[in-house]
Every structure is written in C-alpha cells, then in structure tokens.
C-alpha cells in the first residue's frame, strides 16, 4: 500500500546519484527488496514508471531482486536463510523462523530492506 511513497524516496536517492555522476542516460536500476517487506513488485514497477517520467530515468529498466530473510539462532548459533514451508492445505507458503538445525525459535536478522543495488548509466567520457 505504501509502494508509491517508498518509490518516491527511491527516486530522490536516484536523482542524487544522477547529480553526483552526471548521468546522460540510464539503462537499468536494480533494487533488492527483502522478502519480509510488504512491497509488491508490480506496484513498485508502476510507481517507478510514473515517477521517472520526464527524468533521466525515464524508459530505463527497473529490475527487482528478492533479498532472502536471514535468521539467527541463539540456541545453537545457526545463522542463515530463514525457511518458508509449504502449507499445501492453504496453497500458500508460510514463513517459519524456527532453526533448521535445532528447531528452536530464532530472531529475524534481515529481509526487510529495500536497497538500491546498482545503476547502469551512461556518463560523459
């Protein structure tokens, strides 16, 4: 629901980069979006299209990559990707953050970011 306002902040940061490097044209912007965020990719794409109109980012490709959820287990020290388990009865994937090694509850370390990873752009030689 807040994709547009998050994308507005992304756009602000992108424009700062553009000023810093004097982009002549932009080919691609790569976003890494955590799987634990509530940001729908389609709505992010739509907002990007609307917000980039008339800027140097107009017409560039927005690539969105998933960032996994990482968990930490204080019982056994496991650190790694948090599991999602299939819930066939519900036709959906449920997150489960119990430790894959010892089954104890864990803490979520990451997976709730929205990171501007890369910008592929043309600049003056």
């Amino acid at each position: 629901m807040h994709e547009f306002s998050v994308m507005s902040d992304v756009m602000e940061a992108l424009k700062e980069e553009s000023l810093k490097h004097s982009f002549k044209g932009v080919k691609e912007v790569v976003l890494e979006v955590g799987v634990l965020t509530f940001l729908a990719h389609e709505q992010l794409r739509f907002s990007y299209k609307v917000l980039s109109e008339g800027t140097v980012f107009d017409g560039s490709e927005l690539s969105i990559e998933d960032r996994p959820a990482m968990i930490r287990c204080e019982s056994c020290g496991y650190e790694g990707e948090g599991g999602f388990r299939d819930e066939p009865g519900f036709h959906r994937v449920m997150p489960t953050f119990s430790c894959p090694k010892c089954d104890e509850p864990t803490s979520v370390v990451s997976g709730n970011e929205c990171i501007i990873r890369r910008i592929v752009a043309d600049v003056e030689e």
Binding site: A13, K24, I116, E125
Partner: peptide
Amino acid sequence: HKTVDIDVGKDIL
C-alpha cells in the same frame, strides 16, 4: 559516452 555500473547499496527503508 561510456557506460558505468554503480554499486549504490542504499537501503531506502
């Protein structure tokens, strides 16, 4: 012009 690939690494959230 040359094409650059910039690693930004900025978390908006």
